[in-house]
Nucleic acid binder design. Structure first.
Lengths: 212, 212, 212, 212
DNA sequence: TATGAATGAGGCTTCATTCAT
DNA sequence: TATGAATGAAGCCTCATTCAT
């Protein structure tokens, strides 16, 4: 894992890439991949089109880089929470909070990311796609294992399959976070994470289930 | 509500429209709106391009027709459940089941629809967009009012704002249904709706909350 | 020259043709040949597209019919004036007045006609074109011969070639009449024909105006 | 009036634009705006279609550029003559000669220009149109003022309104120049300008021609 | 290395014309 | 005979990508 120190050139290039990604991200998340031209990205990033092609293989590669980056952050945050200290319940809570934080900090990128993982528009040549989905699957498995651990420890009472539970929580989170971003002005992830926690962990049933 | 009987011509046209919508739906849901050309739709529907333009105003109009149709079905099913008979809890359960059913029956269309209502990159001239979102909002309000009613009736114990609860349930459903569709082969909505019900209504907490 | 009496059918067809020509004329003169579709003509004329093709060979044929019709009226009026009674000077005056009258009565059609004969856009497969230009040429020759006659008779003093004179008068008229039509509201051909007469004839009059 | 020196790139672009305008002009004047495709222009100019769109905003913009250019030349020549030295009569003569010269040098472009200003079929979004017509109107007013001055100076005897006179002269010129161009081979503007002068001025001369 | 002009395939849409009803 | 839906060629324009400078 020893990285050769980067030359000045290389460091510069990395910085440029970041600037391009910033610009592209804003445009993609505002207008959608297919409605953004390389020209527009170049203009927003204040580079020439040619330079874009020096920094990235092609348009799709820019998209890929954005997604991979946010997926990385997501995975890091999720792993940090789920593999951290504390009992399973605490780790689930940490996970929920971590997701909210990542969303808060990467709002537009997440929008793109979720549009990929959750259902939509992954209309790319297979392989890329799958890379991201694979990542997503690993997090889900991790989440499931923590839920299972919580079940064994008597902290959670569900008798649902942990995979399903994981999917439920993940889905709940994803949906909420998207909503959170859609509402333009009043984007307050902390509220939503509270709701998720409440709903997921406490259930909606009346105290006396026999009434149901 | 008496409809004038349609001429043969008109009936034929309606059938043709349906065929085009079928073809377009498959293509859109497989490749995404911007990656599907009118030519491709024409070929899949076995019409000429010109005919497409006799049946629909333009490409966006085809999209719109698909979305509006499934949105109608969705709304009908949702209203049927939420405004049906039974106590609020039963109606919520009916709603969950109804959603699952609609998804089961309209799988690819729903994919498009959800990609619309839930967060995704939707880049059309406002107005259409808003029409669909407005519809979605109305369902959410209806759902919230049933939840609230359930709360007042002592059937649900949440002290969360009903709007947030509604969002949570809707999000949970949406996320699940998308997952359900993604998994290609093993698409079993009934499992997912069971999970949603369980998670949403029972909560994940251990029996003894004090342990948490 | 004995015409077989027309059947009811044929008479009807002629009437239909006139209605189509009316509609087409208005559209062509307002928007230009290439900016008017057969559909639009059909709608304005309140026929179906198919009927248009029963009445005329194709779109160009409609145009042709319009032009030929107005060219006929023009030629008739011009010949009537130039070959009428009176001395050459009087016949020239009659010609000027006749042109003004034809314009007044056929304003939009003339616009099309002039756009053909005078410089503009005769972008049709040769042959048609030439038919109209030929007609125009014949009128010009007739005009030239009257002018020449006027010269020989000592009524006009120009020593210019009569062909040139004819061209000048014709151009003057055409330009004026176009102007006349352009000015929307205040379309008063009588003024313009007065101007033309004044300019052309005062210039062309024999030294002794009392002879006129 | 100091112009920043153009970069080589910019000069090249200007040259390319000229080449495109050349090609487009020939095609437009031969076949008419709507009968010429961008592809044809590209082929004739030996550029790709894409390059056309780098040089011009769209097809109409090419047309506009052609027209504006010739309108500029026309206006310059006309003003030079009408505002030049000499008495009104001499300036009128200079104007007639200038028009003939401009036509001689810009024959196909003038054809397009005249098709615009003189009457026909101009179906563009207003504004452009009006810009050119406005220009034309200004020249006419200038011409009228010179004619009026000539009248006050006793050089011209007409009692027609100077505006009408201007229109007459302008129409005469326009019509002649168009003729001149139509006759393919024998395009000799000097003859026509002689005719115009003869017709217009003999008619308009003060009673005593010796004063001219 | 950085630029941005050049390329041309391909997208959406229109429309003259045909032909089954 | 009258209709108008069906056709598909052709038009305008965009844009990812390349490459000479």
């Amino acid at each position: 894992m020893t990285e050769k120190p980067l030359s000045r050139r290389q460091r510069e290039m990395l910085r440029y890439r970041q600037e391009v990604l910033q610009a592209a991200l804003q445009l993609f998340s505002a207008r959608g991949y297919d409605r953004v031209s390389m020209r527009q990205i170049a203009e927003k990033a204040e580079f020439s089109v040619g330079t874009l092609y020096n920094l990235f293989k092609n348009k799709e590669d820019i998209y890929r880089a954005i997604i991979v980056e946010v997926a990385d952050r997501f995975e890091t945050a999720a792993r940090g929470a789920l593999q951290g200290s504390g009992n399973p319940l605490e780790r689930i809570r940490a996970f929920i909070a971590a997701c909210a934080r990542v969303v808060e900090e990467n709002s537009p990128a997440i929008r793109l990311y979720l549009s990929l993982t959750r259902g939509m528009a992954f209309h790319f040549k297979a392989g890329f796609d799958e890379e991201v989905q694979e990542r997503d699957r690993r997090i889900l498995q991790l989440l499931a294992s923590v839920l299972e651990e919580g079940g064994r420890a008597g902290l959670l009472r569900y008798d649902l399959h942990p995979d399903h539970l994981a999917l439920a929580l993940d889905g709940l989170l994803g949906a909420f976070l998207l909503r959170c971003m859609e509402e333009g002005a009043g984007c307050r992830p902390e509220i939503y994470s509270a709701v998720v926690e409440e709903v997921f962990l406490k259930g909606a049933l009346a105290v006396d289930p026999s009434k149901a």
